[in-house]
Amino acid sequence: MYDVIGTRASRAFRVLWMLEELGQDYNHIPAAPRSPEALAANPSGKIPALRDGDAVLTDSAAIMTFLADKHRALTNAPGTVARARQDAFTHQILDDIDGVLWTAARHSFVLPEEQRVPEVKESLKWEYARNIARLSDALDGPFLKGEEMTIPDMLLVHCMGWAKKAGFPDAGDKLNAYAATIMERPAFQKAAALP
């Protein structure tokens, strides 16, 4: 059984959702960043972390890739062109969407107050709008990669929810409909209902 260390209201949600999609048993430890539980799993105190036996893995995207490869679901086979295209979407979302949102969060409440530059958030919202439009243009099917949901879909839908809560620009009708359909999945609903 896996242990997932991290609160649902963080990137740990991605890992919890993936485990629900995979039908895997897990123990959820809803630890905050830099809490004793988080520090025990990751010396930086960052969440999420995944414990699999004696191994501890960190970084939500790395954990998701590990789980998808291990359970051979929600991914394309390593070494294939389809996997390379999937990984390109994953990195695009992490760089262009997640990175922008994280920078805004850092300048809102993460960094020490004297290090925050609140004015940067307006340019980040502009950048998000431009980048989300590119992903909307790339959506060609029910999922980013066509007919089957893969890791980048989960990352994008999670980031879209984060963006909405943070007051970022609307993603548009096409992506909103896409996200709404994905959020109806039972696994998403179960992860969202966790404490």
Rank of each mutant, 00 (worst) to 15 (best):
M1P: 09
D3E: 08
G6N: 08
S10G: 12
F13H: 07
V15F: 03
L16E: 01
L16P: 02
W17S: 00
W17E: 00
L19V: 01
L19C: 02
E20Q: 10
E20D: 06
Y26S: 10
N27D: 01
N27M: 00
A32V: 15
P33N: 13
P33G: 10
R34D: 12
A38P: 13
L39Q: 15
A40C: 04
A41H: 09
A41Y: 09
P43L: 12
A49R: 09
L50Y: 03
L50D: 02
G53K: 06
G53E: 07
A55G: 12
V56C: 05
T58C: 10
T58K: 11
D59R: 14
A61I: 12
A61S: 14
M64P: 08
T65V: 14
T65G: 11
D69Y: 04
K70Y: 03
K70F: 05
R72Q: 11
T75Y: 02
A77D: 06
P78S: 07
V81Y: 12
A82Q: 05
A84V: 12
A84W: 10
D87S: 13
A88N: 06
A88Y: 01
F89E: 05
D96Q: 15
D96M: 14
D96E: 15
D98P: 14
D98F: 15
G99R: 10
V100Y: 07
T103L: 14
T103N: 13
A104F: 07
A105T: 14
A105D: 11
S108K: 11
F109T: 07
F109G: 07
V110C: 01
V110S: 07
V110K: 13
L111V: 06
L111S: 02
L111M: 02
P112V: 00
P112A: 01
E113F: 10
E114N: 12
Q115S: 15
R116S: 00
E119L: 06
E122D: 11
S123I: 15
L124A: 10
K125V: 03
E127I: 10
E127N: 06
Y128E: 04
A129Q: 07
R130F: 09
N131Y: 00
A133Y: 02
D137E: 10
D137A: 02
A138V: 00
G141A: 05
L144S: 00
E147K: 15
I151E: 01
P152K: 00
D153S: 00
D153N: 00
V157M: 03
V157R: 09
C159M: 04
G161W: 02
K165R: 04
K165A: 03
A166R: 13
G167C: 08
F168R: 03
G172V: 07
G172Y: 08
D173A: 11
K174Q: 08
K174C: 01
L175S: 02
L175M: 04
A179N: 12
A180I: 11
I182L: 11
E184V: 14
R185P: 04
P186F: 07
F188Q: 05
Q189T: 06
Q189L: 06
A193R: 12
L194V: 04
P195Q: 05
